[in-house]
Lab assay of single mutants.
Amino acid sequence: MSIQHFRVALIPFFAAFCLPVFAHPETLVKVKDAEDQLGARVGYIELDLNSGKILESFRPEERFPMMSTFKVLLCGAVLSRVDAGQEQLGRRIHYSQNDLVEYSPVTEKHLTDGMTVRELCSAAITMSDNTAANLLLTTIGGPKELTAFLHNMGDHVTRLDRWEPELNEAIPNDERDTTMPAAMATTLRKLLTGELLTLASRQQLIDWMEADKVAGPLLRSALPAGWFIADKSGAGERGSRGIIAALGPDGKPSRIVVIYTTGSQATMDERNRQIAEIGASLIKHW
């Protein structure tokens, strides 16, 4: 067993022997301040990774656009098919120029040779490549099948209805392509620590998230040296922004954090800054 596999296998073990965790309302004060600064709703939840206990939450059962955070769930569904012998990570998928959609920095470079399922998941999570996500959605049967996968996990809230990039439209009061912070946090925890996926697939999923290259201005910008984070960000229309993450000190994750916002007129930089400040408060009061 590799060191990384050992780390993920012992996530519940280490967490069980940690000192009790206590909620700190100071972080919620910052979440509410972010709402004021952005002029928009902000949803927040913080779960203990081992027990699933909610440590703090704000608007945990209000719907927010998922945006690209759905790509972690998508690759979880792909990995479940791999575990069941219905898919192979090494299978190569070929596609054409007509398949390319807006923001496809990886797939646009491989029109000639195609990409493997493993490479597509890596591109979808680490670079948020939209064509990679659409190609992977095709392998599982489309958005409705991802929703069905989530329902089978016990998540009857999260739903995907459309493809990239239309799913980022974020129309107010439109339930399409949305989740709730509580539902997303619980589902992410199941994917990373539950028995739904094999140990190898859980490790692969967290490795992809740990290698995320496009979430630097968010929670990662607030992390002290030595902290662990595996995350996936999302951005959408109407001032929408979000991030889902597993993080913790001492090089291992111990909490799940989900943050979503929508309806702001603020710039992307300002949305990023507010999420980073929430992260800084979380870490300060850990």
Results as ranks from 00 to 15, higher is better:
E169S: 01
G43P: 05
L146S: 02
V258M: 15
L135H: 03
F149M: 15
Q274I: 01
C121H: 13
S264F: 06
S104L: 02
E102I: 09
A170Q: 15
S281K: 15
S281A: 08
P143Q: 12
I125H: 15
C121F: 12
V258P: 07
G52Y: 00
V214H: 03
G279Q: 11
V214C: 03
S80W: 02
L192H: 12
P217S: 11
A133Q: 08
S233D: 06
K30Q: 14
E87D: 12
I259S: 04
M115S: 01
W208N: 04
I256N: 11
D48W: 00
P165E: 03
E119W: 15
P60I: 02
S281C: 14
F228K: 14
A222C: 14
E145Y: 09
V214N: 02
G39D: 06
K32S: 02
G194K: 14
E62P: 09
G248W: 02
G43E: 03
T69F: 04
Y103L: 00
A276R: 04
T139N: 05
M67K: 09
N173W: 12
P105L: 09
T116E: 12
S57K: 13
A182Q: 10
L191Q: 03
Q86T: 09
A230W: 13
A276V: 03
I278Q: 13
G242D: 14
W208Q: 04
L160P: 12
I140P: 11
A246Y: 12
R241T: 11
T116N: 03
A211E: 06
H110Y: 14
A182D: 06
M268H: 13
L100E: 15
Q88L: 12
I256T: 14
E166W: 11
K232G: 15
L55T: 05
G85I: 11
S80Q: 07
L49H: 15
S254P: 02
P181D: 15
A124P: 04
I125R: 14
T186W: 01
L205D: 14
Q203I: 11
A124M: 03
T158I: 15
R220N: 15
M66H: 08
N152V: 11
C75P: 09
Y44C: 14
R63A: 04
L137W: 02
S201R: 10
I275L: 14
A215C: 14
A124N: 04
N134E: 03
E237D: 15
P105Y: 14
A211H: 01
I171D: 05
Y44I: 13
S264G: 05
R255T: 06
A225L: 00
K190R: 15
H94S: 15
T69W: 01
A215P: 10
L47C: 00
E270M: 13
L135I: 15
D36I: 09
G154V: 02
R273Y: 14
S221F: 03
P217T: 09
G263Y: 01
R159M: 11
I275R: 11
Y260D: 00
